[in-house]
């Protein structure tokens, strides 16, 4: 049963550097979206940065200065381009710095998004699949009180309710089977006490149905307990077969 709990947990182990890249469809989609955003940001930013420091822009600025000041010949050659374009260089560096910060922020957002939304959803999907397959010991790890946390609690509550109902059905069916067996024994033991023949198939059907219910309940795995066909016992003290 611990295996099911383990499977449903689906949280990254401490120190795992690959948590971000573990595949789930939602995670893959998110990675694609975020990489697209980063790619577009990078393309636009690098184009702007390149243009700001590019020869074409510098030539255009120099030409405008020369024209606006009506400089001629030597005077225009004496313009110190490094000095004039120093602010542009600084702007270029600042833009590179801002792009780096934006990329770091996008990656951090992606990481938080995966940790706070994708991983809990993965946990719910895994637990839901296990519960649907009859492993009622599966639990959704609830680490927040937001809507996702509440959804996880609801799934756990559903599993707990289902376990309770199934176990009750199992033990009550088992008790009824014993009652029917007792009736049959009493009828056999007491002289001249024959059961009405029309009732025999009815009793047989009751026993068959009860057996079926017991076998359905036995086919489930429960949280911390085991239904042995008659009673519910702690899973840590399962009698040997």
């Amino acid at each position: 049963m611990d295996d099911y709990k383990e499977k449903s947990t689906n949280q990254p182990r401490n120190g795992s550097h690959f948590a971000l890249f573990r595949s789930s469809r939602l995670r893959q989609k998110l990675l694609i979206y975020f990489f697209l955003i980063v790619f577009v940001c990078l393309c636009v930013s690098l184009e702007l940065i390149y243009e700001v420091g590019g020869r074409r822009v510098q030539e255009a600025i120099k030409s405008n200065i020369v024209k606006s000041l009506s400089l001629t010949g030597d005077a225009s050659d004496r313009i110190d381009l490094n000095y004039v374009f120093a602010p542009l260089k600084k702007l270029q560096h600042r833009m590179l710095f801002v792009v780096a910060i934006v990329i770091v922020c996008v990656i951090a957002t992606l990481r938080f998004f995966i940790r706070d939304i994708v991983q809990p959803l993965d946990g719910m999907v895994n637990a839901g699949k296990l519960i649907a397959n009859g492993h009622l010991g599966a639990t959704v790890p609830v680490r927040s009180h937001d809507e996702l946390g509440q959804l996880g609690e609801v799934i756990n509550d559903l599993a707990a309710n289902l376990q309770e109902v199934l176990l009750l059905v199992g033990v009550i069916s088992s008790r009824n089977m014993k009652s029917v067996a007792n009736i049959a024994k009493i009828v056999d033991d007491v002289e001249h006490c024959d059961i009405c023949p029309e009732l025999v198939p009815e009793f047989e059907m009751i026993v068959t149905d009860m057996n079926e219910l017991v076998s359905i309940v036995k086919s489930f795995d429960f949280y911390d307990v085991v239904f042995d066909g008659e009673k519910v016992v702690d899973s840590s003290i399962i009698p040997e077969e």
Binding site: L167, L168, V171, V225, K231, V232, V233, D234, I237
Partner: peptide, 8 residues
């Protein structure tokens, strides 16, 4: 409880 163990 649903448990039927005398130990409990």
């Amino acid at each position: 409880t649903i448990l039927e163990d005398e130990r409990y």
